[in-house]
């Protein structure tokens, strides 16, 4: 990997994160919070597909994934996104590598795998729940039941699956836009 590749990673991470940031602003409205793992993979897929056309060497997707995890840590979303992004990034890298860094179908799947880190943002809310309840027994069983009903544990795998499926939709959308605009303009 040369300096130019690393700079490319930085540029596309910036575009990707700005999109994540704008969508996350919506997440401030609680109803939209579970929708983040739907919206981010779809819209993030557009710059990510363009990024994949610049990927020619091993490690570029992986590094971008790790950077997303670090950014989540820096912006206060806890460590699970970083832990997941280190692995999902590597898998995404291997998937795209198996297509010799140019297969279009593999690129779409890569976006699906890459998007898994978005769902990891919810992990602390599921994981630490028990500890949280232990300290709030005085709130009564009503409160505990009401909140667990809205955030049941089975939601946890569902958010991951949603992120993966929406990542594939986002990848297809990205391919479509790329054919329509970027290839003509000569930047893809």
């Amino acid at each position: 990997m040369k300096g130019k590749d690393l700079i490319n990673i930085g540029i596309f991470s910036a575009i990707y994160f700005v999109i994540v940031f704008i969508i996350a602003m919506l997440g401030m409205i609680p109803i939209f919070l579970p929708l983040l793992s739907v919206l981010v993979p779809i819209f993030g897929g557009i710059p990510f597909m363009l990024f994949l056309t610049k990927v020619k060497k091993f490690g570029m997707i992986w590094i971008m994934s790790i950077i997303m995890g670090i950014l989540m840590l820096l912006t206060g979303m806890s460590w699970p996104p970083l832990a997941v992004s280190v692995f999902s990034g590597l898998i995404a890298e291997l998937v795209y590598k198996s297509g010799k860094y140019k297969s279009a179908a593999k690129a779409v799947i890569t976006n699906g795998v890459f998007s898994l880190w978005v769902a990891a943002n919810y992990l602390p809310l599921f994981f630490a729940a028990e500890k949280y309840w232990a300290s709030r027994q005085n709130y009564g069983q009503d409160y505990i039941d009401a909140v667990t009903k809205l955030m049941p544990t089975w939601m946890c795998p569902v958010t991951f699956i949603a992120a993966f499926v929406c990542g594939i939709i986002g990848g297809l959308l990205g391919r479509k836009l790329m054919k329509k605009h970027f290839e003509k303009a000569g930047i893809a």
């Binding site: 690393l6 990673i9 930085g10 991470s13 910036a14 950077i67």
Partner: peptide, 19 residues
Amino acid sequence: PQQITIPMSVMFRFFPTVL
């Protein structure tokens, strides 16, 4: 490692421009 710091520095430099 440099592989992480270079993309991150480019990224932070690039945020204001993208916005």
